[in-house]
Amino acid sequence: MKRLRVLVVEDEPSTRAELAGQLAEQAAVGDVVCADGGSEAVRLLGSGSFDAAFLDIAMPGIDGMDVARVLTRLTDAPAIVFVTAYDNHAVEAFGLGAVDYLLKPFRPERLAEAVARIDHHRSGPASTGEKADDLAVVQVELAGRTVFIRRDDIAYAEAHGDYVRLHIGPESRPPAAHRPGPAGRESVLLRQSLTYLEQVWDAAGFVRAHRSYLVNLAAITELRVTSTAGLVALTGAGEVPVSRRHSRLLRERLLQAARSNDRSRP
């Protein structure tokens, strides 16, 4: 896919350089063009189209909100991300159709999340060609026999070369009769990529916790942070490491899931 051409509008030189530098490090980002204020930003719009614009809100003269209003009138408008130190503009920002809203000082992983959102925004909703329910049951070969595993019984999935290792929750392991091989086996290999499973199982509550881990929200019994191991999600089938980059989204999804569980209580 074509790399993103990004406009950075920020009046403070050090913050501008830092933002541009960090954006340039993102794999999805190509050109980064900087403007030191609203009027230069508007002038630069004549130099070619942008895929995304990172806008500071409080600037002298034409401010970030003004620039955003101009941008939204363009045909093929760039995706807008506001970058600000105060969070009291959020409502107005999303009213202008902003894709994301970053708070200064921003963390690298949070910036990566914003770039991912822009990518997602530009390519539209992922079209995997299959419905979410398509992999509700997976079929794996175990010692020459075919075994069926229910998606909802899987606690987490772990990337394993060209395969994914599916770890099955303790109370839902396949009955012994269906489970050839040594007793107590609680994981199976599936020839599939983690990225594919992430897309297909997203609606079923599977969330990326780490570069090589996908976790079933319903299987998480505890989130644990320790000084030595950082953040891990505990499931009945074992611990899943959660990277800094994915921790915010995982927490958000867990919170949503707990809320909807509360609502469905009798």
């Binding site: 505890e222 942070v225 320790t226 919170l255 809320r259």
Partner: peptide, 11 residues
Amino acid sequence: MTVQIAPEVLP
């Protein structure tokens, strides 16, 4: 330090 949270109390 250790911080442990059960998901059901998050909300």
